[in-house]
Design a binder for these strands. Structure first.
Lengths: 157, 157
DNA sequence: GTCGCTGCAAAGTCTTTGCAGAGAG
DNA sequence: CTCTCTGCAAAGACTTTGCAGCGAC
């Protein structure tokens, strides 16, 4: 899969995102199907970090008439991840969780007690990351950062 | 599992590490077995990020006379991770990779082409992470950061 | 029409678990 | 001695794959 859509330019509009998706498919001779669109739309509409399982459940709620198999979700997530349209996180022994990469970039703060995920961005860190990648002769395409600890809520219990 | 060994104080000496491990076991009424020691030692002696599988292989080379089942490795890695003595990384669809947390802290730069992992540290980023965690009322216990891209080697091909 | 896509179910992987004997404390 | 560990094999969870019919283009 080789295509050069630049997802560092933050795409937040769904129509635009959908177009990028269609272009991606066209370039690779893939077809735009109702299932693929539903997956993209569900990911777009969710603030959560979704497992294939939970994405599947969400889709059944959102599109009760659409038949969708878990296998299709797996296949589409692989496709989307390869194309850098979604990124995945994995935490502890839980499985992988996916989120749309086209959202505003952010990092993650993960509570090791309740598992909640808080998002944040820090410009300083973003800058340093680019500098470091450069220093090491690395062509940075993406990054992720997680801070683990006990969240405010759990602390107060 | 609750114990308060502070692995932010970087332990680099194996003997000391071993002692911490023994204390951890004692505190939790667990036994110090030859298998557990071998796992710790193999992790300590490796610069790689190991999957349970590759750790198993390595151990068989290093301790040809020691019988060790893969199940024991899984069980021990879970124990070590829960106790914050090792941390795990997972990248793409590959499984989890573990490394000793007691090593000097560092972050990871992962080549999406060849899968190689380069380690680095940046003081500036470390500082910012603490500041951010504080701002969000988070009790930070650990963090991890990964930069993805194409490494120097792969770029030159 | 063609060729890729989908759901299903079956096959793989990777991890965890139950158990009976072995071994640490 | 007691009670935890271990290896083994079986079970489980999570993913991927083969296939025949369906649907996008």
């Amino acid at each position: 899969m080789s295509q050069e859509i630049n997802f560092n330019e933050k795409i937040v509009d769904y129509t635009e995102l959908l177009n990028e998706f269609k272009n991606l498919l066209k370039k690779n001779n893939l077809k735009f199907t109702i299932q693929r669109e539903a997956i993209l739309e569900t990911l777009y509409g969710s603030d959560e970090h979704l497992t294939p399982e939970s994405l599947h459940r969400l889709m059944q709620e959102k599109f009760p008439n659409l038949k969708i198999g878990i296998a299709t979700i797996y296949r589409t997530l692989v496709l989307l991840e390869e194309s850098n349209m979604v990124t995945s996180l994995s935490f502890g022994s839980a499985g992988k969780k996916y989120e749309l990469g086209a959202k505003e970039h952010h990092d993650h703060m993960i509570c090791t007690n309740c598992g909640s995920i808080t998002e944040f961005v820090d410009e300083e860190i973003e800058k340093r990351q680019h500098i470091i990648a450069n220093e090491l002769g690395f062509n940075m395409s993406d990054h992720s950062m997680q801070i683990y600890g006990i969240c405010k809520n759990c602390k107060n219990k």
